[in-house]
Design a protein around this nucleic acid. Structure first.
Lengths: 347, 347
DNA sequence: TTGTATGCGTTATCAA
DNA sequence: TTGATAACGCATACAA
């Protein structure tokens, strides 16, 4: 006798319950447009109630659209990541939908509705502190997701792409110690973000390698903003024994340090060497051009796009977190300590 | 007798010619998914051959997607425009697809194919020097288009949104003359772009207003890039009678001027005042923060989005070109001439 | 009316 | 085989 404890929820059973044909249910599942809104709702409800599960992979049709979601587009990273994602998606013949949800649930809802209506194939989230039940929502829509995470928030259960923050902090610090600096200030970022912690720890490791002591007085907390960098520089330069070099946890704060140095009547790099982190265009065009740790944002975006597209094709991604390597870019904001007395005009 | 000189190209006649049903042709016209690729191609060909024209407006369904097309995403304007477009589109429940076509016809083709397949509702082009037959292609797809044009290329026959470049050049120059400057250098942009011409003419008008002569020696041609600004500054400061202020036709060149000034051992604004044009974040975070002419890029993007969405709804747009006004933002890179002797240490 | 768009079933097809 | 998607036509619902 066949036991009927699991009646095998199939598309056909849903169709029967909803009083529609099998293809109609299939259309709802695949977000096709030609289903009446009422019918769609009824079917979606039944799918949920009966706990329908897809059999084999997703439909084989090629992806057409991926969604790239930010909290805010005024983050200086945004363009770089957009570039990387657009490039990789475009190469695969896939369009890139960019959205900013400003941390508002209403905006996220509107976006999700739009996403479902146009049957997006995959989602790349750059917004790390995201409403957790947004993820379950995405799961129920069967849309694969990947997180790009330059900020370094603890990973969720989706593939995450980051950068080697610790190694970057280390190489920046080693560069400065290599130039002969022995008192090196650090302008930290928001302490709750892992990336900040990792960069700070890299800094400490760099000091240790050079046999230098860690002096808490030389670490000032910032908020990743320009102004906090300027304030930090002011504080560091006012110390009894001021640093000869400053490593800021991102480029914006590094440029703020420039401004703080300028306000103190000093010059970069003659009086103070400065190193940043991110390698944004802002730093390339500063005066002097900024020595900084390059974070491969475009590559991270490209990898994220290729990863979601593989997921769309039914592949399962093995490693939950991937870190691309940072690298130091030496420009003109750092100089050896020895040169300092020479370059000053007076005293 | 009815004359049969115009056999009234209807969907039905196309359907007959293609050997398909009327709904199938309708689906092709509306970019629906459930049409076989071959069938779609055959029908599209016939629609073109017979010169089919839509009867009443577009279908009444709300817009879901607009396309935003750049030549390159590494333009510093890009983010600002994306922000403006995304914001306005999102508010209307519409998604924003961002694409870069890198001036390559192949990329444009791939984008158009994707666009047709997902039935985009409207297009915003930021890429001004665009393949002209791309426009006809768009027209045949019945997708409305708008051009956002900060570069100032001659208008096509689609609604165009720009900024008041001439007025911006004027206000920048008046600001400098108002501070007492009498020798004011100008770093021009690419001379073939109208925006460059307009800014230059605004500069000349500003000099005239203050009763100052126009000295061709004080105008150096740049290419809108950082390095060309640095070179221009070097040349201007090497003149027998160097300028005390420099107005650069965009922010990147203005920051290049900073660098040129720094390389000459001088300081901004103590020795040379600098004004830029665009008001990009790069200028806000420079040291000293840059006085510049604000170009309302985000507003331009927002207006463009609202305009295409109105066109999607069947409205016809009256004015072919619209210019949003620029405004001077005074920060710390400009100072009165009188202060100069005081702030110098030596001589 | 006539022209066009929508919703959904039928039939064929395809993957496991 | 069976579960699922693809392609297209019929009937109908609208708009001019």
């Amino acid at each position: 006798m066949s036991d009927d404890q699991s009646p095998a929820v199939t598309i056909a059973s849903i169709a029967a319950a909803a009083g529609v044909s099998v293809p109609t249910v299939s259309r709802v599942l695949n977000g096709r447009s030609d289903v009446a809104p009422q019918t769609r709702q009824r079917v979606e409800q039944l799918l949920r109630d009966h706990g329908y599960q897809r059999r084999g992979g997703r439909p084989r049709g090629r992806a057409r659209l991926v969604d790239l979601v930010f909290n805010d587009l005024d983050s200086p990273w945004a363009v770089e990541i957009i570039r990387g994602v657009e490039d990789a998606a475009h190469a695969a013949g896939v369009g890139t939908v960019v959205t900013a949800i400003h941390r508002r649930a209403s905006a996220a809802r509107a976006w999700l509705d739009n996403l479902a209506a146009r049957a997006s194939d995959g989602v790349i989230l750059v917004t790390s502190d995201l409403d957790p039940d947004l993820h379950s929502e995405l799961r129920s829509l069967h849309v694969p997701a990947v997180v790009v995470d330059p900020a370094g928030v603890p990973a969720l259960d989706v593939p995450t792409i980051g950068a080697t923050n610790w190694a970057g902090g280390l190489s920046a610090t080693e560069h400065l110690t290599g130039l002969g600096h022995r008192r090196i200030g650090f302008v930290a970022g928001i302490p709750t973000l892992w990336s900040s912690r990792a960069r700070l720890d890299g800094y400490r490791a760099g000091l240790e390698t050079a046999g230098l002591p860690f002096d808490p007085e030389l670490v000032v907390e910032g908020d990743f903003g320009y102004e906090s960098g300027a304030r930090a520089a002011h504080r560091l330069l006012g110390l009894a024994e001021p640093p000869t070099a400053v490593f800021a946890a991102n480029d914006q704060m590094a440029l703020g340090v420039y401004e703080g140095v300028r306000r103190s009547g000093m010059r970069v790099p003659d009086d103070v060497s400065v190193v940043g982190f991110d390698d944004l265009p802002e730093g390339r065009w500063s005066s002097p051009p900024l020595t900084t740790v390059h974070q491969p944002l475009a590559e991270m975006g490209g990898l994220a796009a290729r990863t979601v597209l593989r997921m769309v094709d039914g592949e399962t991604i093995e490693s939950p977190r991937l870190e691309l390597s940072t690298r130091l870019v030496v420009r003109d904001s750092t100089a050896p300590t020895q040169l300092r007395p020479v370059s000053r005009v007076g005293s």
